[in-house]
């Protein structure tokens, strides 16, 4: 059984194929990294999974059976799929705590909400900032808040788009710890990153995407040794 199955997925913008017959399967409990040069289609893949981009062909299955392909964004989220966006997307006019409450989602029982918010605050290290407006957070704090919002909903599929972009080395280390702590047997995590050392530190397997197709799939060491991967990364 897989946590996420993507079959022959294509997303087309005009005449441009951002994803071109992509297939991918992620196991429960797995941390999968997706890497690839700019414009490879990494964000588009997340857009397709979360219902923002409509695939022209192919299927997206959550846990082998639940077809997400034609569902709305809200339905997909309520099925347990949460995402951190590439550009930090927190609600600036709400406090950190309120952001996390919204992150809990509509299906969260009211009695559980404050516990989950407290847990997310602790895990992201944002306790001292709980009553700060999210709009006035530093860049790194926004990234963590967004991860905290993902956490608060107890998702079964976590999608993280460049969680360490723009972070300092120390912050990157902290974020790697945070993501490792997200691991659970019943949860799959898909991380998009450019930072190879970071990917090596957190991921079980890596998928290399190039021009909307899979170039390589396997361990990070194998990716480093693969001649096509080297060509794509050095040739850009």
């Amino acid at each position: 059984m897989s946590a996420l199955v993507i079959e022959n997925l294509s997303v087309v913008f005009g005449r441009f194929r951002a994803l071109d017959g992509l297939s991918l399967a992620i196991d429960p409990g797995e941390v999968r990294a997706v890497i690839g040069p700019n414009g490879a289609g990494k964000t588009t893949l997340l857009d397709a999974i979360t219902g923002i981009a409509r695939p022209t062909s192919g299927r997206i299955l959550l846990g082998d059976d639940l077809d997400l392909t034609r569902r709305s964004e809200a339905q997909i989220a309520r099925a347990g799929v949460r995402r951190k966006f590439q550009k930090p997307s927190v609600f600036p006019a709400l406090t950190v705590r309120e952001n996390l409450e919204i992150g809990c989602g509509l299906d969260c029982p009211a009695s559980e909400r404050s516990d989950r918010v407290a847990a997310s605050l602790a895990e992201t290290g944002l306790e001292a900032r709980a009553d700060t407006l999210a709009g006035s957070l530093a860049h790194g704090e926004k990234q963590w808040l967004e991860i905290g919002m993902v956490l608060a909903s107890r998702p079964r599929l976590v999608l993280l788009d460049e969680p360490v972009a723009g972070l300092s080395d120390a912050e990157t280390v902290r974020t790697a710890d945070l993501i490792r702590s997200l691991r659970r047997p019943d949860r799959a995590i898909l991380v998009i990153e450019h930072d190879m050392a970071f990917v090596e530190a957190i991921a079980d397997r890596v998928t290399v995407l190039h021009e909307g197709r899979t170039l390589f799939e396997g361990g990070m060491a194998g990716a480093r040794a693969d001649s096509r991967v080297i060509e794509v990364f050095l040739g850009r």
Binding site: I52, E73, I76, A77, R82, F85, I102, G105, L106, M149
Partner: peptide, 8 residues
């Protein structure tokens, strides 16, 4: 759009 992807 963000709020929708949180299930609302």
């Amino acid at each position: 759009a963000r709020l929708r992807t949180l299930g609302y």
